[in-house]
């Protein structure tokens, strides 16, 4: 049953990845930059460059190159970086912890900020608390991440430091192995920046969903039964307001794992996003292809997980094919 439900979704996911791989491959094939030149440097002779081209298989037609790439991929071989000659897989694996820490830590924070604001707004629409919550939401939605990040660094790192107080470190990622305290301390500013911007979306979404649910008959029934307001809000209303939040969470996590590009840039975190920017600037083709595909894998996988969660929660979705 579940298998029949999952199969088309996995198929669609593979189609996305296939098209994505074709896209990056063709993109670099038409690119005017010459990988042999990048690898060998500016002073390389034509003969040396030709040798490199043959070694990398760049002299072959594009479909042969593509098939070889996919073949390598299936064996877990992503090729070597043009710049550092390190296996691409190693480069990427080294960057994953920072991005994972940033996204999942940020997620905890943005849910903890966004959902309570949304719920308290929905309890009394039009009240002062609602208006404050709504103002927070619209400012958060409008704030470009990199501006907020720079303002945070300036006010919370630079100004205190100038007065001799080191509240937060300026940048960098410290692995968990160096101690949870150090790890978290270095991530607080990036987490907060990410969370404030994303929480705004959740505050609005929660409010809208809750307002809809709270107007329904079974809520009136629950209140009439004499249940406490707390129980009505959290056990009855919030539960049915959740599905769109879960969908949104899936979209956000999937996209962010591919690289919280801007935040990693601003805070100097060595994650996947900053690797992407560096590789793009270096024309480091194998690395860029791998990151784009990995980003696709994240989006597709998270989508399938979310769809499956839905199906497990609600049998109607399971049987009706695509919702």
């Amino acid at each position: 049953m579940l298998f029949r439900f999952l199969l088309p979704r996995i198929g669609f996911g593979l189609l996305v990845l296939f098209l994505l791989s074709i896209f990056v491959f063709v993109l670099f094939y038409v690119s005017p930059s010459d990988p042999a030149r990048i690898i060998a440097g500016d002073k390389a002779t034509e003969a040396l460059m030709e040798q490199i081209r043959v070694k990398l298989g760049l002299d072959q037609p594009i479909y042969v190159q593509y098939l070889k790439f996919v073949g390598g991929l299936l064996q877990g071989d992503l090729g070597y970086s043009y710049r550092s000659n390190v296996p691409v897989a190693d480069l990427i694996v080294a960057r994953i912890p920072a991005t994972l820490s940033l996204v999942f830590g940020g997620m905890v924070l943005w849910l903890a900020i966004g959902i309570p604001i949304g719920i308290s707004s929905a309890k009394r629409p039009g009240s002062l608390r609602d208006r404050i919550g709504q103002s927070f939401a619209i400012i958060g939605i409008s704030f470009p991440t990199f501006v907020l990040g720079m303002v945070a660094l300036y006010t919370l790192y630079f100004l205190p430091t100038r007065f001799g107080v080191m509240l937060f470190p300026p940048s960098g990622y410290v692995p968990l192995t160096a101690g949870v305290g150090q790890w978290a301390w270095h991530l607080i500013l990036p987490w907060t920046t990410l969370a404030l911007v994303v929480a705004a979306v959740y505050a609005r979404l929660t409010r809208g969903q809750m307002l809809e649910v709270l107007g329904q008959d079974y809520i009136r029934t629950a209140r009439a039964k004499g249940l406490s307001e707390r129980r009505v809000i959290y056990r009855h209303a919030f539960r049915s307001a959740m599905p769109p939040l879960v969908t949104q969470l899936g979209i956000d996590i999937g996209l962010l794992l591919g690289g919280v590009i801007v935040i990693e840039q601003v805070f100097g975190l060595l994650g996947l996003g900053s690797l992407a920017v560096t590789s793009v600037n270096n024309q480091d083709r194998p690395v860029v292809i791998a990151i784009v595909l990995l980003g696709g894998v994240f989006v597709v996988t998270v989508n399938i997980i979310i769809d499956t969660l839905y199906a497990l929660m609600d049998s109607r979705v399971r049987t009706s094919g695509r919702a």
Partner: peptide, 10 residues
Amino acid sequence: SIPFLLCAIA
């Protein structure tokens, strides 16, 4: 389903 910022920068 496309990681748009990654594709855009590529």
